[in-house]
């Protein structure tokens, strides 16, 4: 088994096919979307492939070290930052092909008009533990 991160972007991914901002959906469309996500996670738990899902606030702060004895410097949020992560799902699956298949299903979550969003998700493999046998 290998773990993959399915990464959802607020910004930075190519535009989805059904590109209507969420605040312009009907309440029923929003409910259908949320239900789809819950059902998807529950189904993956049922197949023994679910690890974690989290959503992030879009508001972030950049922080860096500013030298001995000084408080860290903060900056941002930067409106111009290209990449902005909205959240993720972590899955534990048998093959890379299965990870792509599941990402495709997640991307079909319904949006405006009850139609699939076709959102671009980024699939990133986790670095694993080293194998015991190396030669």
């Amino acid at each position: 088994m290998a773990k993959y991160l399915l990464l959802k972007h607020y910004r930075g991914a190519p535009a989805p096919v059904n590109d209507v901002p969420m605040e312009q959906w009907t309440p029923e469309e929003l409910s259908a979307h949320v239900q789809y996500m819950l059902d998807f996670a529950a189904r993956l738990e049922g197949t023994g492939e679910f690890v974690d899902t989290q959503a992030l606030s879009p508001e972030g702060t950049f922080v860096r070290y500013d030298g001995e004895g000084r408080p860290p410097v903060t900056d941002g949020p930067f409106a111009e930052t290209k990449d902005l992560i909205a959240g993720w799902m972590v899955i534990d699956v048998e093959t890379y092909e299965r990870a792509l298949e599941l990402a495709g299903e997640l991307s079909a979550a319904p949006g405006a008009g009850g139609k699939p969003i076709h959102e671009w998700l980024e699939v990133r493999p986790f670095l694993a533990e080293p194998p015991t046998v190396t030669e």
């Binding site: 773990k3 738990e45 049922g46 197949t47 023994g48 492939e49 679910f50 690890v51 534990d92």
Partner: peptide
């Protein structure tokens, strides 16, 4: 490194 519920289902 997976949740107990996931492993129980597996």
């Amino acid at each position: 490194l997976v949740p107990e519920a996931t492993m129980a289902q597996r």
